[in-house]
């Protein structure tokens, strides 16, 4: 083999590795919650602040927690996906309204539609920290035993719903 080719080959290998690096999203982190019990909380309902919701009440059901906020631009892009997911499938969708003003959040749901069975209000963002939220919107799928099985950071697309979320929910329903 021609020795002069060695630097060229090394360079190509480097370029390939850097190329692979470019296709990955550095914002996507593995969630340490997968396979672990979902963090507990008790928060007031967005629409009835004197009532509370806690994940315990969802035991025995497969459910989806979607973290959203009225100030979050990509949540708006995601919202019609959630609306159509709800129309086509039976999903227990709970909203976690993260670091938002109650009035803004209610107005937002009024304008764009409310796909959630209920939303809880996390004004301080403390429950967000408990759930390791770092980029809204985030979506979690929780199984009947209360264990987190999937985390999706960033807006979900129709493709994510059809190829990932709904098949997983169907699988978990059978467990």
């Amino acid at each position: 083999m021609n020795r002069a080719l060695i630097p060229l080959i090394a360079f190509i290998v480097l370029v390939v590795f850097l190329g692979i690096g470019l296709t990955k999203d550095p914002r996507k982190l593995p969630s340490p919650f997968i396979g672990k019990t979902a963090p507990a909380f008790t928060l007031p309902l967005l629409h009835e602040l004197d009532k509370t919701f806690s994940p315990k009440s969802m035991l025995g059901k497969v459910w989806v927690l979607n973290v959203w906020a009225s100030w979050c631009v990509s949540c708006r892009a995601e919202h019609h996906v959630l609306n159509s997911m709800i129309k086509k499938n039976k999903v227990n969708l709970i909203g976690l309204n993260y670091k938002d003003e109650v009035a803004d959040a209610r107005r937002w749901l009024g304008r764009y539609g409310d796909p959630y069975q209920l939303s809880v209000s996390d004004v301080e963002g403390l429950i967000g920290i408990e759930w390791g939220v770092y980029g809204v919107p985030e979506t979690f799928v929780i199984d009947k035993k209360g264990i987190v099985r999937l985390k999706h950071t960033g807006p979900v697309t129709n493709k994510d719903v059809e190829e990932e979320i709904i098949p997983l929910i169907k699988l978990l329903e059978k467990e």
Binding site: L29, P30, S31, P32, E130, G132
Partner: peptide, 8 residues
């Protein structure tokens, strides 16, 4: 922090 956000 690590239990919530991972080693990252």
């Amino acid at each position: 922090m690590v239990t919530r956000y991972g080693d990252f």
